[in-house]
Structures are given as structure tokens and as C-alpha cells.
Design a protein around this nucleic acid. Structure first.
Lengths: 202, 202
DNA sequence: GGATGTGAATGTCTTCACAGCT
DNA sequence: AGCTGTGAAGACATTCACATCC
């Protein structure tokens, strides 16, 4: 299902290029997979293509947006206004995909009150009320690992049910709350592993 | 094999706490998996435990570092000195794990020549010679998607065999070069998918 | 007794191959 | 003829269960 996102990206390119129809073969080569895989993936959610023809580009794009929940926009809270928070705040792909950062919070009194592109950084002290006030649905956490579990407990209390976590810590959340981890050190380690393996065996 | 990284993290905590020995059960609960899984994972690379006792914490940590290629340090080049590049440059977990950023490059003349923590930002113009000069082994790319393929071709020319890519673009590289993608928009979309799914079915 | 290491069983994901529309 | 949708086969990963050793 993360392949669906990749297919959608390809479809949007094709849409911009004005292409009307696309085959599973074409989507596969763009997405780095096989034609059979594309068809299986899509058929799991419905029957979107026409035999002998392929998939209608705008139609399939629409279906994928619906499936992925991207046909609407989401209200996102960013907790942690450090360097990583700043980078994510400016990340253009978020806004383009309907993820709107509606509030930024930090613990540092130096940062609280400052403005980022029209949004005032608020004190993490009042996290629960702020998150309710702005009706945030998703939280992005770029806070230090030592405090992230505490922040998680509080955003969950505030009604958040989806969390994108950048701290290299395993979070505990109640059932019904989804967590997604981005662990960049781990990604580098995967490269280190591949290089070390390549130098030794094979 | 990315579970190995998680085990190593747990082991380092235990090491700091002065724990001498650990069971697969304990490692499993910390890593969010099962005891059988831990044993299978480890046994794939060797026989590191003692029956009836468990695994020696320092010994297993050492073995994992060796397997993951973390018993040495790696020379990393950072291409793209934007906000994301700045965030990664300061990311403490990289240095702690032996990933040393030895050079930073950017295309913007405004940035070239500036210093980041003692490292002078260099012009991407001379990328090949700079990367050879500093003997970089891994490249982290935080450049715009429109130019990333060109940069990839050049870092590969310069002898780089491992790339961490932050652009939401599928890279083409010759065999023998490893690429790892970090796609943050995609991570948010996974949350959107889960929320949309939760609201509909189940 | 207690915990590992590992074949066997189970489950999940991917690929194959082809019937069935257009 | 061309390309989808899908059961069947195959590959891969996880879990079970137990013999083996400390």
C-alpha cells in the first residue's frame, strides 16, 4: 500500500503530460515493480481498468486519492521547532498533498511567540488545548527521544490518532492510534550494512 | 536486517545500564517482536548466545556492530545545504553511529564558502574532485527532485557506492550502487490511509 | 531448569499464466 | 490483438515446538 503512493505520483506526472490512459506495464516500470504486481495491488481495492485498453489516468488517480485519503486535506500539528521541524515545515510536498500544518509547538521559551510563515509558535505547555482548538488530526513529532513518550501521551489525550515520529524510540500508544517512524540513522545503517556485506562476501 | 539495528539500540541501552546478559524474550519485547524472531534473526549470522543463559550484552553488541558495518566510521558527503541538509548535518545520531559528514556541497553561490561547524560549504560544480579529495564513501542527497538524477550520476562517477536519497524520485543507478530512499510525504500518506480506512471500514 | 538454535508448519507476499473483456 | 483481473504456484518470512546444551 505504500506502492499505491508511488503509482499515484506517476499518475500525476502522466496527468500533467496529458496522457489519457496507461498500462500496468508502464506503471510498473515507473514504480520499480512488475506489471502483475501493479494489477494485484489495484485489484485489491476494485476494478479500475479496461481490458485491452489499460487504466484511465485521471480516473485511477482519483480512485487512488480516495483510497489513500488524499481527496481531502488534513490538519497537522508540528511538535518540536528545532532544525528538523523547520525543514519539515517548509517541505513543499506536504502542502501539495493536502497536509496543512496548522500549528507549531515548542518547549523553548526563546522560540515560543516567534512566527514561521504566519504561524505563531506556541508553548508545548498548553498542548492539549491548542491541539483541540486547531482541530489537529495528525501530529508530527520532532522532539528529543527523552521526552517523546510524554509528548505522545499528551497528543493522544488531545484526540490525535495518527503520529509521525522522528525520535529513534519505540512509542507505546493505545489501540486505535497509528504510529509511523522515520529513523534516519537506521537508513544510513542499512547502507553501511550493504557496503560492509559487499566488501566481505559476494 | 533492519531489526538488527533495533536490537543494537536496545543492547546499547542495556550496556549503559551495566546489564551483562539478556534473553531473546527481553530483546523481543524491547524491539517490538517475538523471541523466536530474535533468535532466527541472530542465528542467521552465527551462534552468539549460550543455552540456558542468554546473550552476553557486550559481545552481542560487538557482533551486531561488525555485521552492520558499524565497527568502523564512514566518510559521508552531504549534497544540498538547504533546510533539510542543515537538519541532517546537526543530527546527533549520525555522528554517534560513526557516520562523519566530511564535506557539504551546494549549488547556491550565496551558500558556497560559508562554514557549518568548521566545514566549508563547497560548490557542487567541483563535486567529483571534492568527493575524491575527501574520500567520501556515502552520499546523502537533499537536493530538489528536478536535479537529483544528475547529481546521482556525478556522485557515482566520483566513486560513491551508497546513497541516501531524500528526493521523492526513483533513482537509476548502475549495479553495485545501493540506494536508500527517505520519502517523508509517503510516510504521512500512510497515516492518511490508516485514518481514512479507520473511518470507513473496520 | 532455562534459554538457545533450528527443522517443520504456517502464513504472507510475489510471480506466473491464462481466461475473459474491449 | 491487447491488456486486465485472478486463481494457482512459487518464494519468502514468521511462528511453533522441541531437541540440545549450559
Amino acid at each position: 500500500m505504500r506502492r499505491l503512493s508511488l503509482y499515484l505520483r506517476s499518475l500525476e506526472e502522466l496527468e500533467r503530460a496529458g496522457v489519457a490512459t496507461v498500462s500496468s506495464q508502464e506503471l510498473a516500470s515507473r514504480g520499480g515493480t512488475t506489471a502483475a504486481q501493479v494489477r494485484k495491488d489495484l485489484s485489491h481495492f476494485g476494478s479500475f481498468g479496461k481490458r485491452g485498453l489499460g487504466y484511465g489516468v485521471p480516473h485511477l488517480a482519483g480512485e487512488l486519492r480516495r483510497i489513500l485519503g488524499l481527496s481531502r486535506s488534513w490538519r497537522v500539528a508540528l511538535v518540536g521547532a528545532g532544525r528538523m521541524g523547520a525543514a519539515l515545515f517548509e517541505y513543499p510536498n506536504f502542502r501539495d498533498r493536502g497536509f496543512r500544518i496548522v500549528t507549531v509547538l515548542d518547549q523553548d521559551p526563546e522560540k515560543v511567540g516567534k512566527e514561521w510563515g504566519g504561524i505563531v509558535i506556541r508553548d508545548v505547555e498548553g498542548l492539549e488545548s491548542v491541539l483541540r482548538e486547531v482541530r489537529a488530526e495528525i501530529a508530527i513529532l520532532t522532539v528529543p527521544g527523552e521526552v517523546v513518550q510524554e509528548v505522545v501521551d499528551r497528543v493522544v489525550d488531545a484526540g490525535i490518532r495518527a503520529i509521525l515520529n522522528f525520535a529513534p524510540v519505540r512509542l507505546r500508544v493505545p489501540p486505535g492510534v497509528v504510529v509511523n517512524d522515520v529513523n534516519m540513522a537506521l537508513e544510513l545503517e542499512a547502507l553501511s550494512f550493504a557496503l560492509a556485506r559487499g566488501a566481505r562476501g559476494r
